[in-house]
């Protein structure tokens, strides 16, 4: 090639190649800056999430302790107070029908013992794993039904597959949280639980006929639902809530078997 043509080409190349390389270097620096920023945001989100998780765990723990305390005070405590009064009447010779009073007292003590066992069972994860999810739910609703005017109904769609025990326990805790919310806030009279062992995964629907809530504005529903959501996310599942004022609430979860 003639040198007269070669020189302008080489001069153009001398300018274009550094420009191209400058463009690539700038692109790398900008991309890394974006990556750095998103990493910082991710770390901050993880920190916030962990903080919220810890807060929720503490709240759940506190709630469980309150529940135990309330159960002891409202049920077992009341029964034992009655037993104490009966014994005072018996020891002071004030009872009109001592034999009947002794029989009543025996019955009250048996009742208190049953309440204690029920309470201990719903809190004991080994026991829940032993009897399985369906039976645990039946016992839980039976126990809750004794002290609340709510009618519980459980339907099971059997399938070929089963959830592993640790997942069953987590599902049971989600159901417990959900039922506790219904009792406290929903003013429901009827609760239906449908559990299904579908080919693609496990599903559970908890529906109540209570007062419902406005999903956009009701911030009070936050922590309990957040706790349920976190448990479901740990199992790579999904949780959907449908509710509207006056129309009850439906909580649907879907969890893969593994």
């Amino acid at each position: 090639m003639n040198d007269n043509y070669l020189i302008p080409i080489l001069v153009a190349g001398s300018i274009l190649i550094p420009l191209f390389m400058f463009y690539i270097t700038t692109f790398v620096i900008i991309s890394k800056n974006k990556q750095r920023k998103s990493e910082a945001e991710k770390r901050q989100m993880e920190f916030r999430y962990e903080k919220l998780l810890l807060q929720t765990m503490l709240e759940v723990q506190e709630k469980a302790l309150n529940q135990v305390s309330q159960e002891i005070h409202d049920n077992i405590g009341q029964v034992l107070a009655g037993v104490q009064m009966n014994l005072i009447s018996l020891s002071g010779g004030m009872a009109e029908n001592p034999d009947q009073l002794v029989r009543d007292t025996k019955e009250q003590v048996s009742h208190a013992l049953k309440d204690l066992r029920d309470l201990s069972r719903v809190l004991n994860s080994k026991y829940i794993n032993k009897i399985g999810l369906e039976e645990s739910l039946r016992k839980e609703t039976q126990y809750l039904g004794t002290y609340n005017k709510i009618q519980f109904e459980i339907d099971v769609e059997e399938g070929d597959r089963q959830l592993p025990p640790e997942r069953e326990l987590m599902v049971f805790r989600i159901a417990q949280e959900s039922l506790s919310n219904i009792i406290k806030h929903a003013e429901a009279t009827h609760v239906r639980i449908i559990i299904g062992y579908l080919p693609l995964g496990f599903s559970m629907l908890i529906a109540d006929d209570g007062k419902g809530f406005d999903m956009d504005n009701d911030k009070g529903a936050g922590i309990g639902l957040m706790n349920m959501k976190q448990r479901v996310e740990v199992m790579n599942g999904t949780l959907d809530i449908t509710s509207a004022p006056g129309s009850g609430t439906k909580i649907a979860i879907h969890i893969p078997y593994e």
Partner: peptide
């Protein structure tokens, strides 16, 4: 690496230019 890119992208064609100019200009 940024320094290498700076150095080699500039010197790349300048070496070729150097060879051509050596003959005449």
């Amino acid at each position: 690496i940024v320094i290498f890119i700076f150095f080699w992208s500039i010197t790349y064609t300048w070496w070729a230019l150097y060879t051509v100019l050596q003959e005449k200009e």
